[in-house]
Amino acid sequence: MAPAIHSFPAAELPLAVQVDVDGKRRRTEDMRRPVDLVQDCELSTLFQYECYIDHPEMRDSRVRCWPVQRFFRQCQDKKGKFTVETTAWEGPAAAAAAAAAASSVTPTKN
């Protein structure tokens, strides 16, 4: 059984990441300023899905899936790397950034 865990709203994420898993203030390379999720942490993304089977009782039934994009920030403190899911904190803005990054990649012609 997992230990009792404190949960917090996603809007408080920038404050919550200042404390490490031992409850101590995170030590960054530059001790004078706190961890900045946008400036210090690289944005990554992966897709999960909402899939529905039209007729579960049939073996060859059609399956329809809608992608759900999730966002993560990979940060570094003096103890090592840690990952912060930012889907709920910056979802729409990150999706726009991801779309812009994808559209800026021009296909090469051979």
Binding site: P3, A10, V21, P67, R70, T83, A88, P92
Partner: peptide
Amino acid sequence: LGLPGDYVMTGTPHHDRPATGHERMIQVP
């Protein structure tokens, strides 16, 4: 989606509903 010390969303994101910022999060113990 999370290892010890990482921060994760405890609920479910949806493809057709943008996040509100009120979703609950935890730090993985």
